[in-house]
Design a protein around this nucleic acid. Structure first.
Length: 259
DNA sequence: AAGCGCGTCAACCGCAATTAG
DNA sequence: GCTAATTGCGGTTGACGCGCT
């Protein structure tokens, strides 16, 4: 266990999502399982905070246990996914760097759709992220290639069948070499913006200067004991549902046995 | 301004593998 | 060793933003 104490990033400040999006999406699609009362759909900041706190306490292994004792109406599976793909400290967010893009292509040519294995070679990237990247970007490149081949074939009267066959298969080495070449060309055109965590935090601090938290407080949150942060901002948030979120002291009562 | 299509990405699902009892 | 529960993985879906018409 023992991920460092790490407050959840305010979602509204992340580059690729806006608060309006998150909230409307949530209200639209948030579903509650009829049988066990489990929640589905997008996670709220409140849920994120709760999950971070409980993972900090009990580690990131026993997800079913965490799901139960946290009061989150989520399955263990859902909690794990949220942690692994979004909340885990050290995750990089934002665009892939050219180096990462190269690595993904190379490793995929070697291992195929072994996303978790590939993710293991890209620190800070998740299998889900890589999978999404591959699907979207490679599809795009395949389309470009299709276009290129099509224009070539129309001038040389090649059959469309061979085009379809070649564009539908991404596994062979030639394909990867082609994609790598295209990548290199693209790198010349586009200056890729990378979002390391430090920069994210800086953005959070500067753009959230009206939130009441000073820069010092934000930085302190990175290193301060979990309890101070949780007790202040998490545990007593929902007055309407006092049973949903247990008191911190409850965690140490005999009801909950330590792992 | 409105509608449409596409790209992105978070989250779900089903199945396989692993672990606990 | 067996069974049930849990975790991990890969495929897929669907909501939303954005650019184009």
């Amino acid at each position: 266990m023992a991920s460092p104490i790490y407050p959840t990033k305010p979602r509204r400040l992340l580059k690729w999502k806006t608060s309006s999006m998150a909230s409307t999406r949530e209200t639209r699609t948030l579903m509650v399982g009829m049988e066990q009362g489990t929640r589905k759909g997008p996670w709220t900041e409140q849920e994120d905070l709760q999950l971070v706190c409980y993972v900090s306490l009990f580690g990131d292994r026993r997800w079913d246990f965490i799901a139960k004792i946290s009061g989150l109406k989520r399955t263990g599976k859902s909690c794990r996914l949220r942690w692994v793909n979004y909340l885990h400290p050290g995750l990089k967010h934002g665009r892939m760097t050219p180096e990462e893009e190269h690595l993904i292509l190379e490793l995929h040519s070697k291992w195929g759709n072994k996303w978790s294995q590939i993710a293991g070679r890209l620190p800070g990237r998740t299998d889900n992220e890589i999978k999404n990247y591959w699907r979207t970007h490679m599809r795009k490149m395949a389309q470009e290639r299709k276009r290129n081949l099509h224009s070539f074939s129309s001038s040389t009267s090649s059959t469309s069948l061979s085009i379809e066959t070649s564009t539908n298969r991404m596994e062979n080495q030639e394909e990867v070499i082609f994609l790598l070449t295209m990548l290199e060309e693209k790198e010349q055109e586009v200056k890729v913006k990378v979002y390391p965590m430090d920069q994210l935090w800086n953005e959070i601090v500067t753009s959230d200067s009206n939130s009441g938290l000073s820069f010092k407080q934000y930085k302190a949150m990175e290193y301060s004991p979990l309890w101070e942060y949780c007790v202040e901002s998490v545990w007593k948030v929902d007055d309407n549902e006092p049973n949903l979120i247990p008191c911190v002291s409850d965690l140490w009562s005999p009801t909950f046995s330590m792992v």
